[in-house]
Amino acid sequence: MTIQQSTHTLSVHVANRPGVLARVAQVFSRRGFNIESLVVSPAMDGKFSRMTIGLSGNPDGLEQIIKQVGKLVDVLTCVDHSDDSAVVRELALVKVRVGVEKRTEVLQIVEHFSCKTVDMTETSMIIMATGASEKVDAFVGMIRSFEVVELVRTGKVLMARGDQPT
């Protein structure tokens, strides 16, 4: 039997307290949902944090998981933004081993994707890519034709458009 998988992005507004991440993560792991990306940082008011969770799994269980996360004592809101009009961005740092001879070629790609070089040595450079995940994916796909030494991505952060709360 194949289980239908789908990807979702949740925004969870939580009280900034010890254990809250473990409590939220536990709801997902108990139901067999795999967290693919997770960003936690202080919200506007330092007493609260914002989690943006990218995940995949059987969509049947998701409605209940969202409710279960929502009812945790330290969680203020848990909203699925998968279908919403929301701005989703992520950032990637890519370290490429590249000498003088191919540097121009790499810089052309950097320019095309509106990336930035944030470090450069005789033999390597670090490129910072920002944007929608698909754009970052496309950039990473292109840059892989060079010698990529390290790749670090932040995971998605998200904000609802217009008057909608996140």
Binding site: P18, G19, R30, V73
Partner: peptide
């Protein structure tokens, strides 16, 4: 104990 009981409590404090 905070970690061990987490799945079986409504809430907990250390």
């Amino acid at each position: 104990v905070f970690g061990l009981t987490m799945p079986v409590v409504k809430h907990s404090y250390l």
